[in-house]
Computed example of a mutant assay.
Amino acid sequence: MKVTIKDIAKETGLSTATVSKYLNNIKIQENNRILIEAAIKKLGYRPNRSAQILRSKKTRTIGILISDLGNYFWGSVIGIISHYFASQQYTVITRSYSFDMELEKNVIRDIVSQNFEGLIMLPFNNCDHYYQLLQNAGIPVIILDQLPTMIQDYPVDCVLSDNYGGSALLAEHLFQNGHTNICILDQAINSHTIEVRIQAVKDVYSRHGINLETCFPCAEPFVFKETKDVIQENKQRLYQLLNAPDPPTAVFFTNYISAMGGLSAVNLLGLNVPDDISLVCFDNDPLFRAMHTSMTCVAQDLTSIGIRASELLMQRISGDYSNFPVTEIINVEFHSGKSVRNLHAGR
């Protein structure tokens, strides 16, 4: 026999109105919440989501929009967001636009037409302003990993890692180990994240009186595209640089994708890390655990990113915009591996 909210009310001695408030995520007294949750567990109550939607005129659906469903890096963030909202009785749907901005716009319009209650998205780049289509429709949106250039005109909540601080730590580590002839691999046009990481490295070396642009200029920037293409492009770039008459002593990978391409080039040339070439990376990818020499890197706190984005979105869905807009900077963690050779040793 199907358990109803009347059964829960009878079990707890509370009114059906109080039980209904709890089931619709309306705040109630703490002692009543405890009674209701105990009754739900005891009776095995399962809410009728279709009926809830019809009564409330809300879909209780949350979207996650990313560029590439094949990009495993963001899998843990998607999992954390999904778990958070599932625990709040929301359905979570993940969509992709496959690095196609026109498709992205169509997907967002589709999300608007389906009356999603909120969206967490990884935009195409920092010039991407399609999130305003959601805001215009009254749908709260949280941006991950970018700071849009249009944020002054179209304010939006953003959650991203401490890109500057983490990159500065890696750059200082390279300098203190004697590396002044370094290569920064991966420059994506219109990426706030990549631009900030590169600027941090340049600033650290500038404070030490070194202009990286004259010592070892960065490669030409490119428009970000599919992951496999970026990996191949970085493989070719580093292969050429390491074959040059005056190769760099160290490489700064701006993210795990550039590292995947760069490591392919290092392996192809048969170079030893760190004796022949030193490496650091902004990201701590599972791939690095398979390396004979542990990678010196900074790790993004993907758990905190997912939780904070979820909390912010839930706050907006509830109608609380008291601190809007928020830009949350999540701390990163420095991992001192063995991929950097100390050039001062033995002098």
Rank of each mutant, 00 (worst) to 15 (best):
N136L: 06
A137S: 02
A137I: 04
G138D: 11
G138Y: 03
I139K: 05
I139Q: 00
I139H: 02
I139R: 01
I139D: 13
P140T: 03
P140M: 03
P140F: 01
V141H: 14
V141Q: 03
V141Y: 15
I143S: 08
L144K: 14
L144E: 01
D145Y: 03
Q146V: 01
Q146Y: 06
L147E: 08
P148E: 15
M150S: 09
M150W: 09
I151L: 04
Q152I: 00
D153V: 02
D153W: 08
Y154V: 00
P155I: 00
P155W: 00
C158F: 12
C158G: 05
C158E: 14
C158T: 14
V159H: 07
V159W: 15
V159C: 11
S161F: 15
S161P: 13
S161H: 05
N163I: 12
Y164I: 07
Y164R: 11
G165N: 11
G165H: 15
G165C: 08
G166T: 04
G166M: 03
S167W: 06
A168F: 12
A168E: 07
L169S: 07
L169H: 06
L170D: 00
L170S: 10
A171M: 08
E172L: 09
H173D: 02
F175H: 08
F175L: 10
F175K: 15
Q176G: 01
N177I: 13
N177P: 09
N177D: 03
G178A: 13
G178P: 12
G178R: 07
G178E: 14
H179V: 12
T180D: 11
T180F: 01
N181A: 10
N181K: 12
I182P: 13
C183N: 10
C183F: 13
I184V: 13
I184L: 12
I184K: 04
L185M: 12
L185C: 06
L185H: 09
L185V: 01
D186S: 02
D186E: 07
D186C: 00
Q187Y: 04
Q187A: 12
Q187C: 05
A188T: 11
A188F: 02
N190H: 14
N190W: 09
N190F: 03
S191M: 06
S191K: 02
S191I: 05
H192S: 15
H192C: 07
T193G: 04
I194G: 11
I194H: 05
E195V: 00
E195Q: 11
V196F: 02
V196T: 15
R197E: 10
R197W: 04
R197N: 14
